[in-house]
Design a binder for these strands. Structure first.
Ligand code: FES
Ligand code: FES
Lengths: 132, 132
DNA sequence: ATTAAATGATACTATAATTGTATCAATTGT
DNA sequence: ACAATTGATACAATTATAGTATCATTTAAT
């Protein structure tokens, strides 16, 4: 069971790399070489980050991607949400047979509690905090 | 992202059902009808629980499965481990490029912390506690 | 003994999610 | 005009999850 999938991982690493080197703009070609990630896959990822306004792209000959936000304002939960959807641990798999009343179900309560905790923790991590 | 997969879910429900009805022994046929789960799949699951000494099986004509342990001693983490492997959130996906020192890596610390918390919480749930 | 109903073991298949690749169009600096 | 880039999107490969099938073995009842 993974909390962070490959695309999220690549995204984080790329964002960290871009943040650190204050050079500003990078093309996918450059980044994929630099970070050792498959170029087309990384490209798809950066395009997604662009759509979500985490990165900003410029097209044309010397195009590329730059940060669109302060790295202190890019949260781990944001990136996870983009590539893995909303973190949702408490989907109710167990049916009525053991859960005569969902409102009192201990398992459900636990899962909700765990989810809240995980989200809170992940929300305390930003790209900026990963750089130090 | 799911914390609990289908097989874990079925296992939990079956264990709860068996625990509750103190009838003792149940065949897969009976259980799958009772719980509305696909028979061959449930069978595989119960066989796994048998191997792990959570259930105890008897073969032959009136064979079936009974609980091998006190439901207060069957923990949610046990069942998850059997079907999903050891819960391990902190697999280090991010490589050295952003993690010059794993011992000080903030992300890693967070994931370890989260994992510990999740395990602690899951360990507080038993089959017995789900019945109430 | 024979048979029916069960589990043990294990191989197989189907579906879904993850992890990619490929392609064509549009943009832009030279 | 051309080369190097991104935008959009369809396609393909791999892996994980979910489920089926089958044959051998055990046991109770006849
Ligand atoms: S398992 Fe979902 S309400 Fe109990
Ligand atoms: S991400 Fe693994 S040590 Fe930092």
């Amino acid at each position: 069971m993974k909390l962070i999938t490959r695309d999220t991982d690549y995204a984080l690493r790329a964002l960290c790399f871009i943040s650190r080197s204050n050079a500003g703009k990078f093309s996918v070609t450059k980044l994929s070489k630099e970070l050792g990630m498959p170029r087309p896959f990384l490209r798809k990822i950066l395009q997604a980050l662009n759509k979500q306004k985490i990165l900003e792209s410029t097209r044309g000959k010397v195009g590329g991607f730059i940060l669109a936000k302060d790295p202190r304002k890019i949260f781990l939960t944001d990136i996870i949400r983009i590539f893995q959807g909303r973190l949702k641990l408490n989907e109710c798999l167990l049916n009525k047979l053991i859960c005569p009343d969902q409102r009192t179900c201990l398992l459900r309560k636990m899962l909700v509690k765990i989810e809240r905790y995980v989200l809170k923790e992940l929300d305390s991590i930003t790209i900026a905090s990963l750089l130090k």
